[in-house]
Design a protein around this nucleic acid. Sequence first.
DNA 1: TTCATTAGTTCTGAAAATATGAACTATTGA
DNA 2: TCAATAGTTCATATTTTCAGAACTAATGAA
Lengths: 128, 128
Amino acid sequence: MRPLFHPSIEDVTVEAILHALSDPVRVAIYGQIAGAACPQICSNFVNISEKAIPKSTLSQHFKALRESGLIRGERQGVEMRNTSRCAEIDKRFPGLIAAIIRAHNIQSAQKARNGTKRKGAGRKAGNK
Amino acid sequence: MRPLFHPSIEDVTVEAILHALSDPVRVAIYGQIAGAACPQICSNFVNISEKAIPKSTLSQHFKALRESGLIRGERQGVEMRNTSRCAEIDKRFPGLIAAIIRAHNIQSAQKARNGTKRKGAGRKAGNK
DNA sequence: TTCATTAGTTCTGAAAATATGAACTATTGA
DNA sequence: TCAATAGTTCATATTTTCAGAACTAATGAA
């Protein structure tokens, strides 16, 4: 098992960050890691989505987050402690992560409101 | 040939925007459309990358940008006029597009500088 | 030591997404 | 009516992603 790869901050790209965060499971994971005060363990996220995420899939998601430079993972005993690299990234791309997280929160809030009021909305309507 | 689909602004998602802009060709296209004063025609972008992009591929890229809600395409005679929907998107997700474009500009500027000074940099080094 | 447990990675094949040549559609202007 | 131009759609090859199974590494018993 080879040691985990983390890009140095100069090698972090906008494309990789956007790609990593364009997946609903990964933004959810990243949001929680970035918002937490202490390092988060991978297996905490098995139930972040409606249905349980298989651990091989979860491992791939963490790999994507790590290799895009969004998080850092350090093995601590039998488990993996994940922390956000948002301070570093914010220095390189000021405001980027904050804007994405903010947009995400707006969207989640709207979804929650619509979920209670009008059912079945938000479909790609009129597009046979 | 069915009419082009454009999502209404409430149906635009952060995930779709990030995914659309996580592709280097598509950000380049979007950046130019967003920065231009007048509508841009698809075929202007054939040479936006090093190698020419086949028109079927280009058409798919435009479709991705349209269906994510980032641009609007209107047929005008034989060609297609593309405009950015950034005003609408900025109302829904304030600062998101601006932050992404800014980050992209930072990255491009750095790439240009490194390209002249140290060749072969930016590779995923030390990762067998 | 050896065994079991826990947490995560890697391998493998299936499923989904993307890229592109070829064929097609729509508009315009000889 | 024909040719040219701009773009879409179809078919298929390539690439990426998903997820079960097997594997690795650390820890804590017995």
